[in-house]
């Protein structure tokens, strides 16, 4: 039992050894000369409930909500302080929830919002970092692609240019030249041509200097010219005022020339048309085909020119 009660002379409750709230009610009832049965009749309660209350026996009372109501009614009948008596009984019930102010919850609610906002900001920062890293990686790969593309093409070009035209090479024409010069003279001139070309030729073009070409190239190419197919006399002339990547392929799409030309270079390619020409930076190039100047603007988009010549 929580608390002990005694009924004083003035009818109020005082602290006293252990009669409990039920005992206090019983003392008050006896002082008024009223029997437990009469109390039960007035309150419309079974006599055993009145007995249970007076015996402080919560176990014999009904559900707490009813028990508290009965004790209040009994206390009011005895003109005693009902709330003190109800508090004295251990009824195992939860006290009614106090009315709280909405502001009480503000802190918790705001804390949840702050946590949510924090998570959101963290995710945004992570996303931003990932984006920046990806952007840097992309730029690096693009740069390496531009710098490395001649070398890569060079590697891929070498076996292709050597292997591809080889079966189609008109060996008899090389073996039996139509000119009146002796074979030895021709070989000497071819050797000189080859040495000259080798000095000027970038690495990409070296692969083209196969022995089969050497004989044909030695035929009649002027200085600074480069043969890109085994036969043919179509001439592509390019003058560069800016650095520009040049690719020439045949009608079947096979790459027969590719290199980066520098500003001030002149390039003269001799071969069998048609040629598919790709110029990486059109404004820096003047192109002529068999001596005829070719306007690039109709074939240019974003400074990149693609055109087919000699069709």
């Amino acid at each position: 039992m929580r608390g002990t009660f005694r009924v004083s002379d003035d009818g109020k409750l005082d602290e006293s050894p252990s009669i409990g709230p039920g005992g206090a009610l019983r003392v008050a009832r006896e002082r008024l000369g009223v029997s437990a049965r009469e109390v039960a009749d007035v309150l419309n309660l079974p006599i055993r409930v009145v007995d249970a209350i007076e015996a402080n026996d919560a176990a014999r009372m009904p559900a707490p909500v009813f028990a508290r109501g009965y004790i209040r009614a009994y206390a009011r009948l005895m003109e005693m302080d009902a709330e003190t008596l109800v508090a004295g009984f251990e009824l195992g019930a939860v006290a009614p929830e106090p009315v709280r102010d909405a502001a009480v919850s503000v802190y918790r609610h705001q804390r949840i919002l702050v946590i949510a906002a924090g998570i959101l900001i963290l995710l945004l920062v992570i996303a931003l970092l990932v984006w920046v890293v990806m952007l840097i990686a992309d730029e690096a790969s693009e740069a390496s692609a531009v710098e490395g593309s001649p070398a890569v093409d060079q590697e891929s070009l070498a076996p292709r240019t050597v292997a591809a035209p080889a079966p189609a090479l008109p060996r008899p024409r090389i073996v039996v030249p139509e000119s009146t010069e002796s074979r030895r003279e021709i070989e000497q001139r071819a050797g000189q041509e080859a040495g000259l070309v080798q000095e000027q030729t970038p690495p990409a073009a070296i692969a083209q200097e196969s022995p089969e070409f050497r004989g044909r190239a030695a035929d009649a190419l002027p200085e600074g010219s480069r043969r890109i197919t085994a036969d043919g006399d179509d001439v592509l002339t390019m003058e560069f005022s800016e650095d520009c990547w040049v690719e020439v392929s045949d009608t079947q799409g096979r790459n027969i020339y590719s290199d980066l030309s520098r500003a001030g270079d002149q390039l003269r390619l001799v071969g069998n048309a048609p040629f598919r020409v790709l110029l990486g930076y059109a404004p820096g190039v003047k192109l002529a085909y068999n001596g005829e100047s070719i306007p690039l603007s109709p074939h240019t988009r974003n400074n990149l020119t693609r055109l087919v010549l000699g069709q």
Binding site: L43, N44, L45, R68, G69, Y70, R72, A73, P96
Partner: peptide, 14 residues
Amino acid sequence: LAEETGLPVIIAED
């Protein structure tokens, strides 16, 4: 109500 119905009548808390 207790007098009229003959039943125990209690008032809920709050």
